[in-house]
Design a protein around this nucleic acid. Sequence first.
DNA 1: GCGATAAGAAACGCAAAGTATCTAAAGGGT
DNA 2: ACCCTTTAGATACTTTGCGTTTCTTATCGC
Lengths: 233, 233
Amino acid sequence: MTGPKSRRRGAPLEQAILDAAWDELREVGYARLTIEAVAARAGTSKPVIYRRWGGRAELVLAAWARKLPVEPETPDTGTLRGDLRTLFSRIARRADSMMNEMVAGVMGEAFRHPEVAALLGERLSNPSPLTGAVRSIVDRAVARAELPPVELPHRVLRLPLDLVRNESMTCGAPVSEETVGSLVDDVYVPLLHGLAAVQAAGGAAEGRGVAAGSGVGAGSGLGAGGGVREDVG
Amino acid sequence: MTGPKSRRRGAPLEQAILDAAWDELREVGYARLTIEAVAARAGTSKPVIYRRWGGRAELVLAAWARKLPVEPETPDTGTLRGDLRTLFSRIARRADSMMNEMVAGVMGEAFRHPEVAALLGERLSNPSPLTGAVRSIVDRAVARAELPPVELPHRVLRLPLDLVRNESMTCGAPVSEETVGSLVDDVYVPLLHGLAAVQAAGGAAEGRGVAAGSGVGAGSGLGAGGGVREDVG
DNA sequence: GCGATAAGAAACGCAAAGTATCTAAAGGGT
DNA sequence: ACCCTTTAGATACTTTGCGTTTCTTATCGC
């Protein structure tokens, strides 16, 4: 054996710490994850971790970043709605409670640490493999003439993930099949049809869709509302 | 004066504590809010607070619940798009960083305390005054023939708030006018048109819209994906 | 091998959580 | 007016984890 006094450095040590952090995250969650526990699990000590990362949030984000996005196999059920339900369900499974608890926790700290906010935002706004799946699903639906040709803005591409995450986080529980159905049937499918319609109508007026010249109160008028702002929900 | 030894009890004391909690929240935010500080500000002591609430999350939720939802004056700019932009902007202003930091923080704890999750979920899924505003805006657009008649499912009614909150929380910064524009133009307006179209077409097939009989992979098949579930974004 | 670098171990001060104990004030009932 | 139950308010305590400091010594580049 290497003996009781072998001492790792650099990359291998870093990997060990990140692995430990990830395992700890899976076992106790973000709220109960402590630097000390990660250090212990990695067989190292706190200062080694603090020398590399600024705190829990950064450590966890680094551990997360190592996990490569899983390319979801694009579902192919034969209908737009079926494909979307399958896709949304898969997202809902993967966005399990550990993941969401982590995101919620990191978010809480992101408000105080701009660099954490930046890392998190980057992580959440680039669901690259998912956007590909959405695109293929829609393309296939267009090919089947189930949907008029439509171009999907970035916002719409990332919407599935945003919807599911929002749902999962606000109810703090796994997203039910019923909810998935509602997201697909009440929101996403109609949205796709609407986008197609709007693009067919507005034709020339690219980019900013719909009634493109109409924005009356659009700029920064924003009306009254300057007062109380106590509540949102 | 009442003298240095006047002692509040019951409701008045409770109100004082909740006010203190709210003020503290506004000043230092959820992450840095401590029970001790709230007790000090309210001129009372920790045990008094712990006798009434289980911890930060419950205390803060109670303080929040006292703030009555502000009835937003329904904007009236003359166009659907203008009204929506104004409404979304107002939501974005009210969902300021304090609010979102609080929600994020409470969410973090909600995963460990089911009762907190319940309170939070209830609070977030009933944006009653907002749904009214959305309805009026849409009704007016329908009256102007800017939009075919359309019925809005609950999910669609709460979508504006969900979209803005999601945006605000994931980027940890105020939602820009540009983002608001994207939410309205790329998502919400097309969605409304799509809903109208779908309802006009599907006519009889109420409730669950679109291709109502098609759900192939809908049930619980959910395909592969059972393996890695490491990443979402 | 030598010297710079950095890991590992231990301990620190600090802050806040949550709990326990005690006192004395408030308020209700007679 | 009194007593008696309730509970506010004060204080102190244990625990936990943070983030830091110090010191020793293993590892690596030269």
